[in-house]
Write a protein that binds this DNA or RNA. Structure first.
Lengths: 213, 213
DNA sequence: CTTGACTAGTCATATTGTTGACTATGAACG
DNA sequence: CGTTCATAGTCAACAATATGACTAGTCAAG
């Protein structure tokens, strides 16, 4: 149940419409949570029913009418409660890692391409995050901003996003380089066998074993 | 639908029982995916029905009978297909980040405690990953192992896990230090106001606005 | 003068993931 | 002699996320 809190946290600095929220949560700029528009609209509706956010209609001349939401006192109290409760550990969950885990048994070509693609995406996010950070801290140096600036929360989460994407980029490039080097060194690899075993699933005596470990 | 592929990838180096799988996917050792036992048993059952894995009963004298699963040729083909398909981007999704995003509006005490706790957990995982990596590469140096060793897939994913946890630890410590310093500098902070605005939600003219941005 | 992109939002359904309880057996702790 | 721990697994219910389709208006380019 952290999406609701992520929404509350995102609404803390300034009112946003569902649509604006959706963009913030969708484009990788979501450095602390991710969600699709549908989820956000639904969550905003729930939050409003429970009185944790309130919306006000804004009629626009040129564009469709929108509703800007802000956090109520009850919403702030709920966030406070959430912040004091225990956090569940965070996990990595990544398609590409699953594929690389299987790298010794599948064709390396697509993996190399995907890793490099991913590195480029990470690079773009790194640039974006750096720009955002520069903007947030204004003229100040980072240390100074973190000591004396207002609203450091978003800055800190953006720093985490930056570090994450740097880690991503570095790992992707390293992985691509290694897989490339290896598939050049042993061209018959991939789904096929190396010098030793590979297709034989195991010593496989068909029934009954004991002495596990 | 990546859980099934994560299971297949995990079963590639050696047969495992559902129970063993569950432990591998549960304890942070799951550096490429995470899942609870129930999901894994269910997924194994599905995979077996579809012929992507096959199990064999192993009767043990001292412990309950178990079933060891291995990937079939069809399973390998499915993995191959998966590896060649596009990966969806990976997102950060972390309770603690949500809380830090709200750091300027909630009590910093619990955040500091949680960040330090998290740093300690990350440190433990770092140790674990380093041990696992050392074991995997045997006597070889890292570069040599990655060039010439067998099964580098698990090594690479473990490297990602290591880097992730290092990033986690560093960020948590930095965040804790900064929040600590700030709450020492301005003791009245948290849910309350700083010198400037904070409780006032916005300039808030009650109805109708135009010229957005 | 139509196609496509952007703003703004909704609905229904499917897939995934989480929680909690429950069955068994043997081993070790004290 | 009873409790707890570890292995090995299952079931049902629920919460959270994701997918896909759809409305409706504005603007700009081709």
């Amino acid at each position: 149940m952290a999406l609701r809190h992520a929404v509350l946290a995102a609404l803390l600095d300034g009112e946003l419409s569902g649509y604006q929220l959706a963009k913030a949560f969708d484009v990788g700029v979501a450095n602390f949570w991710h969600a699709l528009p549908q989820q956000l609209y639904a969550e905003l509706a729930r939050l409003e029913r429970e009185g944790l956010v309130a919306g006000r209609q804004v009629v626009q001349e040129t564009r469709p009418t929108k509703r800007l939401f802000h956090v109520t006192d009850a919403g702030l109290a709920e966030l406070e409660r959430f912040a004091a409760a225990a956090s569940k550990p965070s996990f990595i969950r990544d398609d590409l890692l699953v594929k690389v885990q299987a790298a010794d048994h599948v064709d390396a070509g697509p993996l190399i391409r995907q890793a490099e693609e991913r590195a480029a995406i990470a690079e773009a996010k790194i640039d974006l995050f750096r720009r955002i950070l520069r903007k947030m801290r204004g003229g100040l140096g980072e240390e100074e901003f973190l000591r004396t600036g207002g609203r450091v929360g978003p800055y800190l989460t953006c720093l985490r996003g930056l570090a994450f994407e740097e880690g991503n980029r570095d790992w992707c490039l390293r992985t691509a380089a290694i897989l490339r080097e290896r598939s050049a060194a042993m061209p018959g690899e991939g789904t096929a066998a190396m010098t030793r075993e590979a297709t034989a699933p195991a010593p496989r005596n068909p029934e009954v074993a004991h002495a596990e470990r």
